[in-house]
């Protein structure tokens, strides 16, 4: 069965000085949670902003919802975007966010917003508390409350986990799971994250971005079969280094990520093979593609 896509972006190009976002094709699978992983400055936020329609200076074509709609303005009601930083005007208070959301979106449910503000402990019941007076974590919770109070089909989330504490990150995963379950295959979540370990249990599909391009992607389970974690003794380190995708060694031995198809090249070495975590795969892929020097 062919995978359906919530969003298809084709030939996306956006140039900055010294950086080019260049994505020949990106299909965000419908009905799943997709993580966009990459180092700082890889182009994740730019790409999410383009998909959300809050950045318009790019080349390329984006089709939303089963390739039917090319105009982002017509689908904004169905998209929910959460961003970091100055997402709301700083002088707005929690109640004003509710009021303006009601004006901005047809499907905004004020009661659901109030319920979510209570559940997430935003402002301790003080609706007059200003956005500028909230901590980064609470500001992100407020953003989530505003977006989740609408009937959307696709959530685009830029670093939703970063300002949140571990407990709240767990709650975020629960929120994403509930959102996907409620949609019965029609809801999609696309989020960028640096907190791969915390978000792994909610990630179905993963895209790894480096220097403005998607360098690896796939369903997490498929990636975990494509790559393996290899651990070995120090005596084999030099030979293994040539085969491994990523390598880290110490005085006792080494470990690294290897393409499963290259495992036979390590034959004869005293190694153990384990199933890697998404975090280990991501770091290995990023290391292999980064401009940073790792020695």
């Amino acid at each position: 069965m062919e995978m359906q896509s919530a969003i298809i972006a084709t030939n996306i190009k956006k140039k900055y000085k010294g950086f080019t976002l260049d994505i020949p094709q990106c299909r965000i699978p419908k009905g799943f949670a997709t993580a966009l992983i990459g180092e700082n400055g890889a182009g994740k936020s730019t790409f999410l902003n383009i998909l959300a329609g809050i950045r318009l200076d790019f080349k390329g074509d984006i089709r939303y919802f089963d390739e039917q709609e090319p105009d982002v303005e017509k689908v904004k009601e169905r998209l929910g975007y959460t961003g970091p930083g100055c997402y709301f005007l700083p002088n707005w208070n929690i109640t004003q966010v509710k009021e303006i959301s009601g004006l901005l979106f047809d499907t905004f449910d004020a009661k659901r917003y109030e319920q979510l503000c209570g559940e997430l402990g935003i402002g301790d019941g003080d609706g007059l508390k200003k956005v500028s007076g909230l901590s980064d974590g609470n500001r992100m919770k407020l953003t989530l409350a505003a977006v989740l109070s609408r009937e959307t089909e696709c959530l685009l989330m830029d670093e939703p986990a970063s300002p949140l504490d571990p407990l709240m990150r767990d709650k975020l995963c629960e929120i994403i799971r509930d959102y996907l379950a409620a949609g019965q295959g029609e809801h999609t979540v696309f989020f960028s994250t640096h907190n791969i370990s915390d978000m792994e249990n909610v990630t179905d599909y993963c895209m790894i971005m480096e220097n403005g391009s998607i360098v690896e992607e796939g369903f997490v389970e498929d990636l975990k079969e494509k790559y393996v974690l290899v651990k070995g003794e120090r005596k084999d380190a030099e030979a293994a280094k040539k085969v491994l995708y990523s390598f880290s060694g110490n005085s006792y031995g080494f470990e690294g990520i290897c393409l499963a198809e290259n495992l036979d090249k390590l034959a004869g070495m005293d190694i153990s093979v384990e199933r890697p975590s998404l975090s280990q795969i991501s770091v290995a892929v990023m290391k292999a593609n980064t401009k940073l020097y790792f020695g």
Binding site: A52, I54, E73, K76, G80, G83, F88, I100, L104
Partner: peptide, 9 residues
Amino acid sequence: QWEYVKTSK
């Protein structure tokens, strides 16, 4: 600061 406003048509 206009990000949220810009997410709506």
